[in-house]
Design a binder for these strands. Structure first.
Lengths: 111, 111
DNA sequence: CTGCTATCCATCGATAGACGATGGAACGGA
DNA sequence: TCCGTTCCATCGTCTATCGATGGATAGCAG
């Protein structure tokens, strides 16, 4: 039954995805989830129970800062934006991701 | 301190890497770890405490089968090989991996 | 005005997977 | 004889993802 398991996310990449999304401008959690889904042609499906812990993590590490406001739909919403440290972290995680994927590809292409 | 965290592996990809390695021919655990490290230019560093549970998983799921033998260095070694189900699983995980990476790239290249 | 659905927040518990530490046994060379 | 390498394996921990759940409010259909 585990055979056909299809995942919502590649583990370990959520922080990267969130940082990148927020780098485009202030955004609230719900919007981040929607953007990821839309932008990835519905492949990346971030559940809220994955997203909010991630946002807490990133806030705690000083990569994001949050501020309360009102959404386009007139709802109470917390807007997240990148800190300078977050910008550095984004660059770093991005590079590390590419490094990993390249390494995996080296294994996969081999005989 | 979590800032500079550099990982040994991209989580969720170990099974794929092992299946691909074993697809080249019968191999023992130690050899698999070495092959991954070498083939990836020392980027992928699989510890034995990650590898052996993975091998157990794959055996249990019927993707690998193991048989005891003697290594080139004259040591007692368990040789793993792909089953037909394992071959299918390899193809499937490979495809899923590409799908995920492509989706992540879509997010990363965006504005 | 009453419901329904969508939007937006958040937490809890379970689970899985990777890792560090550790240990044992046997071979070969110094 | 002692040590380094090879090869197996397990245990406990930790982190991250996920499913389930819950609450509040805005806007719309009836």
């Amino acid at each position: 039954m585990t055979t056909g398991r299809q995942q919502d996310l590649l583990p370990g990449t959520l922080d990267l995805l969130v940082l990148k999304t927020v780098a485009r401008g202030k955004m609230h959690g719900y919007g981040i989830a929607q953007h990821l889904k839309a932008r990835s042609a519905d492949v990346l499906q971030v559940g809220e129970s994955s997203l909010y812990p991630a946002l807490q993590r990133l806030l705690l590490n000083g990569f994001l800062e949050g501020e309360w406001g009102t959404s386009e739909n007139n709802r109470r919403a917390r807007y997240y934006s990148l800190t300078p440290a977050g910008r550095k972290q984004l660059a770093s995680e991005r590079k590390e991701f590419e490094r990993m994927v390249d390494a995996i590809r080296l294994v996969l292409v081999g005989p």
